[in-house]
Amino acid sequence: MRNEAKLGLALLLTPLLLWLSLLIFIPHVDVFLVSLRERVGVGTYETSLANYLTFFNEPLYLWTFLRTAVMSVLATVITLLIAFPVSYYIAKMVKGRVQSALFLLCLVPFWVSELVRTFGWMILLRETGVFSSLLQFTGLSSGPVEMLYNDGAIMLGLVYTSMLFMVVPLVTTLESLPDEVVEAGYDLGGNGLSVLREIIVPHAMPGIVSGCIVVFMLSLGNYLTPTMLGGKESLWFTELIYSQFIVRFNWELGAAFGFMLLILSSAIVWGMLKLTGQSLEKTMG
């Protein structure tokens, strides 16, 4: 009996362990090892930190990383600010069929691929696009207006792409807040602002934190949106990694960049959690 239980546990754990080791652990170890190699001649490598030094010594690389991080944080904040009222409305203000319908509406854009969605924005924003034509037609602008290939367009795309990942955890946590508690907040003398600050936001904190982590990571690691909406010169960190691996064929530097992205994004998430006094266990539990 005991042996059977052990066998069962082993069988249950096998897929997980296989997944963890084959798809997460081994590739990362390999990437790390590759990043420590320095090419000193044709086909000869030495172990060194040269690739990491390149990252820190080249201002463009650091700058790109910093820019990516700041833009991602900003995208996260904007997503939160838009998603919070939307989620509150869905979770608390409407009931029954309307609620599910609205929730479904948030989901609908995600039935098409990210590529198609981003291309949709390009149709709207480009020089010959819908908005530009509209502005010319109404006489608000004399010539074509280019709205693509700038930071605003990237931000728009990032927020749009991330919205669902913020709305879902927020709706879930806000739904678990009893109406009674909000009413008690008003009944005991609170106004809209103080009820929001002292009751609704603290209650929704786990949802806010998990939503923010997901959106931040998605934005930081996004390749498609910055490239399509920001153009070739959008300076997104994932583009640097892509060009090292695919264009320059410099796997060593690309691997070092990849590893830096992992470390720095983890550091930023950790820092944010510390800053807001949250912990990962509390959020996920």
């Binding site: 009893p178 009674e180 508690v181 008003y186 009944d187 002292e198 603290p202 209650h203």
Partner: peptide, 21 residues
């Protein structure tokens, strides 16, 4: 007079204590 200004307070059915405090 809005609820937050009325000189009445209410003990709710499920008490509605604030779990975050």
């Amino acid at each position: 007079v809005p609820p937050n200004k009325r000189p009445v307070n209410m003990v709710f059915q499920h008490l509605a204590l604030f779990p975050m405090m």
